[in-house]
């Protein structure tokens, strides 16, 4: 049974009994959708972030760096992309993390595989996709994120762009961290709880707005309305979706509900996924932070490779899955 079924009953009761809206009315459908999805997504989010935070407490970046130093092309890129998923990484740590990798001998291409995978494969997005659309779409998302991260790292590694990194990065000498005391379980759980509070506190407005937009579309936009514009018939839908997605900067938690509605209204799965990856993985604030360590042409290349990769993935899925419904 769906564990969220009681929430659905509650949403139905408020919408149709308390407020007396008709189940066939647009307003009723929108409100019911909103009242069900907001608590559902917030609960999913809190539970998932808690477990992710506990797992992450075992993979501090200092450990990841040790695993990756002196790694080679290909193998190193794969390992870096996988570690990118579990290593805790907030954009404010991007600079010390990048310098630490480079300084300890992690090849530039391998470092980039990590830098791409870390924001692109967002654990919140994975779980929400799992909860809202099932494991197939969630798996597609993870696999495509890994593919982009691995290939873009290999390309940057092959091009030998070490001189496109700001020169001072190579002059910094890292000290020995000494041995940090291993965290106790108590500390891990406290960290996870604090992390849940921080993230949910930060993203709930995105969730509410995202689901609000989704709810309005759910009720008022006719099914198949978007097929004309973004369905399989429009070959330019994927690059357009990416172009729209890049300047939008939202949390994964806000985008996933919209993606669900887009698919329901006739947007091809690949196009919708490309849109989501562009919103989550390519963000302007991250570019501004990375500017401290990368010269502008390397940032442009980094964004360019990723955008092309996302477009390619979008086309691929559109080919593989005609219309997942």
């Amino acid at each position: 049974m769906d564990p969220f079924y009681p929430l659905q009953l509650l949403a139905n009761w408020i919408t149709y009994n308390v407020l007396g809206l008709s189940a066939t009315s647009k307003l009723g459908a929108s409100l019911d959708f909103f009242l069900f999805d907001v608590p559902k997504v917030l609960i999913l989010l809190a539970v998932v972030i808690f477990f992710v935070a506990v797992i992450r407490s075992f993979f501090p970046p200092e450990k990841t760096k040790k695993l990756l130093s002196h790694s080679r092309l290909y193998g190193g890129n794969i390992a870096a992309a996988l570690l990118g998923i579990v290593t805790p990484f907030c954009s404010c740590s991007a600079v010390p993390l990048f310098i630490g990798f480079v300084e300890s001998g992690v090849p530039l291409g391998v470092t980039f595989s990590f830098l791409v995978a870390s924001p692109m494969i967002n654990e919140v997005a994975v779980i929400l996709l799992l909860g809202l659309f099932g494991w197939q779409i969630a798996a597609l998302y993870v696999v495509s994120g890994l593919l982009i991260a691995i290939t873009s790292g290999i390309i940057i590694g092959k091009l030998g762009l070490e001189s496109w990194v700001e020169d001072y990065v190579y002059e910094i000498r890292m000290g020995e961290a000494g041995k940090l005391p291993e965290q106790t379980w108590r500390e891990r759980l406290a960290y996870a709880l604090g992390y849940v509070k921080e993230i949910v506190g930060k993203v709930w407005p995105y969730v509410v707005v995202g689901i609000g937009i989704g709810a309005v579309m759910h009720g008022y936009v006719p099914n198949d309305f978007l097929v004309k514009y973004a369905g399989p018939g429009n070959p330019l839908a994927v690059p357009l979706a990416v172009l729209i997605g890049v300047p939008l900067y939202s949390n994964a938690a806000g985008v996933v509900p919209i993606v669900g509605v887009l698919i329901a209204k006739g947007v091809s799965v690949g196009t919708a996924l490309a849109f989501m990856m562009a919103v989550v993985g390519l963000s302007l604030p991250e570019a501004i932070i990375l500017r401290k360590v990368l010269k502008p042409k390397l940032i442009a290349l980094y964004f360019g490779i990723n955008a092309v990769g996302i477009v390619a993935i979008g086309y691929l899925f559109n080919l593989v899955i005609p219309l997942a419904r």
Partner: peptide, 13 residues
């Protein structure tokens, strides 16, 4: 200062 931070071997702030 990022140089001083790195001198402590720290990669995450």
């Amino acid at each position: 200062d990022i140089g001083q931070i790195m001198a402590y071997g720290v990669m995450s702030t």
